[in-house]
Amino acid sequence: MKSNRIFLSGRITALGLAALLGFNAPAWAQLRIGNPSGITGSVAAGVKENIEGARLYFDAVNARGGVNGQKIEMLSVDDRFDPKVTVEVSRRLITEQKVLALFLNRGTPHSQALLPLLAEFKLPLVGPSTGAMVLHEPVNPWVFNVRATYQREAAKAIEHLASIGMTRIALLETDDSFGADSAAGALNGFATVKQTPVLQAKFPRDKPDFSELAAQVTRSNAQAVMVIGSAGNTANGVKALRAAGSRAQVVTLSNNASDGFIKLLGEHARGVIVTQVFPNERSVAYPLIKEAQDLARAKGLDGVSPAMMEGFAAAKVMTEGLRRAGPNPTPVALRDALEGMRNHDIGGLQISYSPTDHTGLDFSDLSIVNASGKFMR
């Protein structure tokens, strides 16, 4: 098996899976949470920013003495963006590392693959980095989302395009559960504005060839195209569209709301619309944003990205859940503590859960990449 990577205390250490799961943590690291995600592969850029944002908050909490006198240890393991590997490493994190929860994993098929594991071990998944409707409805007792659904984002984006006069919109979607779920939201948006896509086509999740799809988009005379896919695949799709001569407005979803995605787009970044599920990362009117910016500057970082804010917000929710679970938390106690959270302010945004609602937040917005390679609202 290829080696996986674990991020501990800001260090990156390449370890084999067996070595990883035999890691002897310091005696103080009693609050362990497992973070299986695509540290390598087509989503690596955004995942690394998710992890950086979460660690920004956890490090600050630990510097103040931790939670109920115990420090939080996040074990970040590379699942290579492969659902089978996600389950494999997660099972070992649960059974051998004794994590209290899984946290901030990336991917819709990957999160779906974890659901039986959560039920088997009665252990929560907090802040999955996906807006899949299957994690929201019906409510899963072990899943606690900290973001809006992809369907809401996709519908809002289509409605925006129609509102600025676009009537010829194409839809390209990755051929997996994430693509199907997000496309359903886009089609709801089309229905709302009484339109249909001029082209709807799928592409494989692994190593797609966009040349023919780009030619189809060009022939359709699309004014805009929504690309539903990972950061790497979406960037390659945009490059193929431009190479085929299409000048269509490109819009994609918040799974690509990272500085890394902008870098992947390169010269084609300007003008790409990306939906967002957190406030503007430069809007210090939100205490959540100001806190993250202050902590980032204290670490010598230039600022925070949308993907970092997703990790930061999820870390705040996880920390509050651990605090409420008491000095000797169990996975079940953590689950119960989270479900009892009502109108908890994480910095200008209110988090609420109940037995009938595990969405947490429902914020949704649009951004566009400017000439400087920054998201603008």
Rank of each mutant, 00 (worst) to 15 (best):
V251C: 09
V369T: 15
R147Y: 06
L171P: 13
D176L: 11
P279N: 03
V77M: 02
E281F: 09
L123I: 15
D259M: 12
A313Y: 05
G179R: 07
Q216A: 11
F363L: 15
P141R: 09
G66N: 09
S9L: 14
R55E: 03
L241Q: 04
I289M: 07
A154V: 07
F375R: 12
P109N: 08
L213S: 01
L187K: 10
H344C: 02
F58C: 12
D302K: 15
E281R: 05
V217W: 00
A180F: 09
V139Y: 00
A235M: 08
V225D: 00
A148E: 05
F58R: 07
V85H: 01
E291R: 13
A119D: 14
M309Y: 03
G165I: 06
R324M: 08
H160E: 00
S177H: 02
A54R: 03
S76W: 02
D362W: 11
N35C: 14
S367A: 15
T252Y: 00
L361Q: 12
I33P: 03
H160G: 01
P208H: 06
S211F: 10
A63K: 14
D365C: 14
V134P: 04
Q97C: 12
T356C: 05
S3V: 14
V274Q: 00
S129C: 12
G232K: 09
Q276T: 07
A325L: 04
K2L: 10
D176S: 10
Q195E: 04
E310I: 15
I346T: 04
L171D: 01
T95Y: 00
N221I: 03
G266Y: 07
R92N: 00
D82K: 11
T359A: 14
S211Q: 12
A162N: 04
E173S: 15
H110M: 11
T330K: 08
G266T: 10
K48W: 12
Q97P: 10
L187N: 09
L125V: 14
E49V: 15
S258F: 13
V134G: 05
M308Y: 03
K48V: 13
G271K: 07
L31V: 13
I273P: 01
V134D: 00
M309P: 10
P204C: 12
A191P: 05
L265K: 04
P327T: 03
A148P: 08
Y353W: 11
A315H: 02
R147H: 06
A180E: 06
S42M: 13
S129T: 07
T108M: 07
T275L: 10
G340L: 04
V332K: 03
G360T: 15
V134N: 02
R297G: 00
V251R: 03
N50S: 07
V143Q: 06
N35P: 08
S220G: 07
T330R: 05
R335T: 11
S3K: 14
N140Q: 10
G131Q: 04
S211P: 13
M318K: 00
V85A: 07
F121W: 11
A313N: 06
E52Y: 08
L288Y: 03
Y57L: 14
E267F: 08
S230E: 05
Q200W: 09
G360Y: 11
N256K: 05
S246E: 04
A224L: 11
N68W: 00
P279C: 10
